[in-house]
Amino acid sequence: MAQAVLQGILLGGVFAVVGIGMSMIFGIVKLANLAHGEFFILGAYLSMLFAGQLDISPLLTLVIVVPLMFVAGYALQGALINRVLGMGDEPPLLITFGLSFILQNVLLLIFSADPQTLKTTYQLKTIVVSDSLIVPVLYLVNFIVGALVILILGLFLRFTYTGQAIRAVSDDNMAASLMGISVKRSYSIAMGIATSTAAVAGVVIGTTFTFYPYTGSEYLLVAFGVVVLGGMGSIPGTLVGGLVFGLARTIGSQVFGTNYQMMIGYIILLAMLMIRPQGLFSK
């Protein structure tokens, strides 16, 4: 059990990154991006592509994958989603729903439905702490990457003009526009950040679990759970949400078997939606 808890915590750091982009878009654009899971898994596939072509470690491919995914998210928001904002809640939501479907099928077309993994040199290494507790290096690296992403994002939002502008927009977009902030551009940047953080999470998860084109929707629900648990737009909340979901998954899989590993997470999420949909960390 201690092993499951440890792995759950380490996995939680990554789950937090899965959710953080979703949380940002939720908080800033007030939109649930149903294609978030596909961006996540797209990151894994891109990494696979570049790692194979350039013969480098999946983590190194982030140097290419992250900017690429940023541009994709920025362009998507600017060209498509910004156009339908203000037409009510449903059109933007359904656009992301359609996008998720398209991306899934594009991935299927290019990469087939075969399960894939990203191979690393450290995937089987472990640090033995005691007889009953070993730390898989893979999980540790993942956790560190996750923590770094969250730290960098937090610093960015706090200390750069662009980051502050994004926070202002999330607080009150009309007032933000009076400050000379371009609201739509802030939305696009936020989407760029969301897609690139999702891709980082995808790469990291891809080194740990097998994935295929449909994996995205499973992680969309993880992302959503993290957001609902942590409250939208809250970084500490996202971390806690990630930890809860990481633990729910490893413990669930230990106690109920792998078929039910997501069950506890879903139940928590559903309960949260019923009792406190604004999340634990929102006022």
């Binding site: 649930a32 809640d89 939501l93 629900l221 959503f224 609902v228 078929n259 039910y260 997501m262 069950m263 879903y266 139940i267 999420l269 559903l270 939606l273 019923m274 949909p277």
Partner: peptide, 20 residues
């Protein structure tokens, strides 16, 4: 009792749970 978006996601989650 959930508002729009939450209802949408919740129905999806319930379907996933039933599938499991």
């Amino acid at each position: 009792r959930m508002r729009g978006l939450y209802f949408a996601i919740a129905t999806w989650i319930v379907s996933e749970m039933i599938k499991i």
